[in-house]
Amino acid sequence: MNSHIPRPASDYPPGGDAFPHRHLIGIAQLTPWEISYILDAAEQWVEMNRSGAAKHDDALAGLTIINAFFENSTRTLLSFEIAGKRLGADVVNMNAAQSSLKKGETLIDTAMTLNAMRADAIVIRHASSGAVQLIADKVDCPVLNAGDGRHEHPTQALLDALTIRRNKGRVEGLTIAICGDVLHSRVARSNILALTLLGNEVRVVAPATLLPPAIERMHVQVFTDMDEGIKGADVVMMLRLQNERMDGAYLPSAREYHELYGLTPKRLELAKEDAIIMHPGPMNRGVEIDSIVADHPTRSVVTQQVEMGVAVRMACLDILTRRKRKVSGWN
């Protein structure tokens, strides 16, 4: 596997100027060099995480991080929890999908409650687009978006970019096909923003019923034919297809979807010989991706994505709390 050497710090503006944002709401607010700054910062955490038994740093010791997940999640919640703990923070998980919101408390009230508990960072996932922004406007600490509706999932796009960079040696000038339920996918939106911003040719491949309107305005090429869409691609990024999309409203059936859009070994031959296969998980094996492809020893990078996820989230938590921690140059 290729490894990537991060740019030296002197390539970036000094101190807090390198990342002047208080929150991480979406990729839409970031510049290419800010993305690159996070990816470079994540590299050291990849190394530490691989270093053996003592995977621990005290950078965030004494800080309280609340993971407020208003929508069910296992992997992202776990990833953020591990990221916070590896940095020495006190991490608290609030699974709000079955708590106070069900009792009628408004989202703003919940946000004010978290704020009053003096969290040093809040990580939020919510089923409604824009919900994370709404909370960020009301609280005093940094807010990280762990996915809001169909809007954005910025840490996923960052971990995908890091995975691509480590495998391809670069994350620019590549042809990347994002395939599947683009309409309902925040992962797709954040990835489209990040990967086009970094200078890649991005394609979206989806059934016509699962393409967002005016998606070409986001500077992507649009395909409804899977074979055409992945032809010559360096990266094939599959999206998860929710079961409820296959009940006839958007798609006739799972087996028809697999026939037309599933990533099979045969179809994968159309992509570049060294194309890598990505999936944000959890995978529907046999629907959008065949097991033999998902588990491909050299080309599937699905588990690496999970690994990069922890490192990227450590980088984000570190960078966003630097002002609070009064790191020199960050005020």
């Binding site: 687009s129 809007h151 309107p213």
Partner: peptide
């Protein structure tokens, strides 16, 4: 309404 704005915001839209 269907369009670039709704798509960028991830809002459900109609033509």
């Amino acid at each position: 309404t269907d369009g670039e704005m709704a798509t960028r915001l991830g809002l459900s839209s109609a033509p």
